[in-house]
């Protein structure tokens, strides 16, 4: 893909801490000391199961955390050097939809049911660029064509309920990309779609990214989607980054016991586990936000756990190349 490793990253998340106020006592920490970068034209996949903090990371970047309970407790979110965590609400509104935009899992609930598709896309242009309405509608039409919606002129006049799930997700993508953002956040964009439609949407995102050079942060629980799309991968568990690396590093040599467990738990087509062989189980469940254990948060479910793991959380330790994992046992030399 056309990106230069020497180029400065578009987005730098540095030491992000997302917390939720609780009735009494200290706030619950949902995302803990998270750092990563994304470059132009690059696809970073953030992968993890429900409750790992992957969606809250996206909402933190866009400052869409539920108020008044959720807030960024610490850290910086640098977009081309500007710290989004510090700017005013008005300045942030100018960023959303223009420099960074987002697509969500369920397109029906993110589209306004009483406005036409065209109006909703054109509105984004209207807000961010000083163009007259017909020029905005022109941009909307061009965008529908770009996301390969058949009969775009007719679709422009239609309402969300008249479109299929796949078409709605295309409209969301059109809306997200109409101002040519630097960064696109996609939170489980294909989870609600059928597999043949998922393939269409993933191909579309990849093609548009090559055309526009937008950096994509793709949030998913599906390792298959990661294998298809990612250049770099970040694995999260219970609010922490537990492993990071290039997609081949992660798939060739998964290092954190959680990543290994996740890969072995997934039945996949022509999988090596043998038919009806036992799938690897990760015993137990993700700890609740308010009941995260001290030390490594994966320790209670980890097959390789040491006494040290229950006391002291491991830092991210390099294991060669760009690959790093937060584990005393598999990445450290404990």
């Amino acid at each position: 893909m056309a990106f230069d490793a020497a180029e400065a990253p578009v987005l730098v998340v540095d030491g992000l801490r997302t917390e939720f106020a609780t009735g009494e006592g200290p706030p619950s920490v949902a995302v803990h000391d998270l750092s990563f970068t994304v470059r132009r034209g690059e696809t970073l996949c953030i992968v993890g199961e429900s409750g790992c903090g992957k969606s809250l990371t996206a909402l933190s970047i866009l400052r869409l955390l539920p108020r008044p309970y959720g807030r960024i407790g610490a850290g910086r979110v640098l977009l081309d050097g500007q710290d989004l965590a510090q700017i005013s609400d008005a300045e942030m509104r100018a960023v959303r939809g223009r420099a960074i935009s987002m697509i969500f899992q369920e397109p029906m609930s993110s589209l306004n049911p009483v406005l036409t598709i065209g109006r909703q896309i054109a509105e984004t242009v209207m807000v961010h660029e000083q163009l007259d309405w017909s020029a905005c509608m022109g941009r909307a039409l061009e965008m529908l064509r770009q996301v390969r919606i058949p009969e775009p002129e007719r679709r422009l006049q239609e309402y969300p309920h008249q479109l299929s799930g796949g078409m709605r997700q295309r409209v969301m993508i059109a809306m997200a990309l109409v101002c040519r953002p630097r960064v696109l956040l996609a939170d489980e964009p294909t989870t609600a779609l059928d597999v043949t439609i998922q393939a269409q949407i993933l191909d579309l995102v990849r093609d548009l990214q090559q055309e526009t050079g937008t950096a994509v942060i793709l949030i998913t629980h599906d390792l298959g989607v990661v294998a298809e799309m990612a250049e770099r991968v970040l694995v999260m568990y219970a609010g922490n980054k537990v492993e990071e690396g290039s997609v081949t590093e992660i798939f060739d040599a998964p290092t954190h016991p959680y990543t290994r467990g996740l890969m072995a738990a997934m039945p996949h087509l022509g999988g090596g586990q043998g038919h009806r062989g036992r799938l690897n189980e990760i015993p137990g469940v993700v700890p609740a936000l308010h009941a995260r254990p001290p030390g490594c948060s994966f320790a209670p479910r980890c097959p390789l756990v040491l006494d040290k793991c229950r006391v002291e959380a491991p830092p991210l330790l390099g294991v060669g190349g760009t690959h790093a994992a937060a584990c005393w046992v598999t990445a450290g030399n404990a």
Partner: peptide
Amino acid sequence: AAVPVAHPR
């Protein structure tokens, strides 16, 4: 064919 691959390679 539409099922995502199991390995990036």
